[in-house]
Computed example of a mutant assay.
Amino acid sequence: LLPGDSNHTVAAASMDTAGRIYAGVNVFHFTGGPCAELVVLGQAAAAGPLVTMVAVGDRGRGVIAPCGRCRQVLLDQHPDCLVIVPGDGEPDLVPVRKLLPHAYNSPEAAPERVVRFNPRYYDAVLDGSKTATTRFDDPCAVGPAWLLFEFDEGYKRLRGVIESVESKRLDQLTDEDAEQEGGMVAADLQNGLRGHYPAIQPESPVDFVRFRVEQTSTWT
């Protein structure tokens, strides 16, 4: 609970890939005290990548969107974080990159990355029968990454490495691509993507991402 004074008016909380929660409040000061989201980042400094963030205001304001500075810091340090923001009625869950279009990308940031998967793919990723994923408007980067699966019981995660990211049109996906996705043919892969992404079109650019698993699973 906030103490009810003008120095602490916003609280924030975030979750990491292990399902641990970090919370903090803002510290107002005329010299420029930190926002609640930045306090949370400090609390979670040793946690690895954060996957969700939310802030709420005092006096019944409810969920509030992060300021511009917090958006930039989150994008630099936790680019795969989803942020809860006010919506039309209910709050919305939005990728942080959507909150800061045409953002500056800090070359020194070197953040840990997260790639989310539907939990039904966990066994196939673990046994190596699924070594690729196709993404629409969901960028990945070559290098180490947490492969994250959200089950009802909690997160399950694998350490992995993104080996390559190839951009192509939806209608250019091949049977070879689909086989790496998990034993499909191109038509099945394209139809599955159309079902998952209603806005996707045959000419839409998608990223075909190849990866490998580096570590066995961990329940958290």
Rank of each mutant, 00 (worst) to 15 (best):
L1D: 15
L2Y: 10
P3Y: 06
D5Y: 13
S6C: 14
H8S: 07
H8Q: 12
T9L: 11
A12Y: 01
A13W: 13
T17Q: 11
T17A: 12
R20L: 15
R20T: 14
R20H: 15
I21R: 14
I21N: 15
I21K: 14
A23R: 09
V25D: 14
H29Y: 15
H29Q: 15
F30E: 15
G32R: 15
C35A: 15
L38C: 15
V40K: 06
L41R: 06
L41W: 00
Q43G: 14
Q43F: 15
P49K: 02
V51D: 00
M53N: 12
V54A: 08
A55G: 09
G57T: 01
G60Y: 01
G60L: 03
G60V: 05
I64K: 06
A65G: 08
A65V: 03
R69W: 03
Q72C: 02
V73I: 01
V73R: 07
D76H: 07
D76F: 03
H78Y: 02
D80V: 05
V83T: 09
I84W: 00
I84P: 03
I84S: 05
D88S: 07
G89N: 06
E90W: 13
V96W: 04
V96M: 00
L100W: 09
L100C: 10
N105R: 15
N105G: 15
S106Y: 11
P107V: 08
E108Y: 14
A109N: 07
V114F: 04
V114Q: 10
R116S: 13
P119K: 10
P119V: 10
R120I: 11
D123S: 13
D123L: 12
T131R: 14
T131A: 13
T131P: 13
T134A: 01
T134S: 00
F136E: 02
F136N: 09
D137H: 13
D138A: 12
C140Q: 10
V142M: 01
G143V: 06
P144Q: 10
W146G: 10
E150P: 07
D152C: 06
Y155Q: 12
K156H: 05
K156I: 04
K156L: 00
K156V: 09
R157H: 09
G160F: 09
V161R: 14
I162V: 07
I162E: 03
I162F: 10
I162M: 04
S164H: 03
S164L: 03
V165H: 00
V165M: 02
S167I: 08
L173W: 05
D175Y: 11
D175S: 02
D177V: 06
A178Q: 03
G182H: 09
G182Q: 06
M184H: 13
V185Q: 07
A187Y: 08
A187V: 13
Q190K: 04
L193R: 00
G195R: 04
G195K: 08
Y197K: 02
A199S: 03
Q201S: 00
S204Q: 05
S204G: 07
S204I: 01
V206A: 02
D207Q: 11
D207I: 02
F208N: 11
V209N: 11
R210E: 03
F211H: 04
R212V: 03
Q215F: 03
T216Q: 10
W219L: 11
T220C: 13
